[in-house]
Amino acid sequence: MKSLEELRRIRQDAKAQVNIRTEKDGARIVVGMATCGIASGARPVMKALLDENKRRSLDSVRITQTGCIGACKLEPIIEVYTRGGEKTTYVEMTEEKARKVINEHIVNGRIISEYTIGAYEK
């Protein structure tokens, strides 16, 4: 170790790895990962969410998984719980859409209504 900068570079990378273990007070994103969800591609969606989250250093956001949300034909489904406790359900997710949810909904606070379950039902 020849400089403090070197140490800090190691820290930055390492921090992203362990960030999951600290208490989060921000939004919570839940990915439906039952058989139906995984079969229709929930895993890449989850990875995209994790990756986008890291890229933007959104430390307070918690990404987790759940079982079958119920509407299997609309999988992959993700649910966003904001700090106030409001829930938004997004359906037929893709990696690209997932990234957009982080950018628009989490960062800018704008719900992307065309991806929501409400839009689908119309």
Partner: peptide, 9 residues
Amino acid sequence: MDLSRSHVM
């Protein structure tokens, strides 16, 4: 390195 979605401690 891959990011993990869960850590089992």
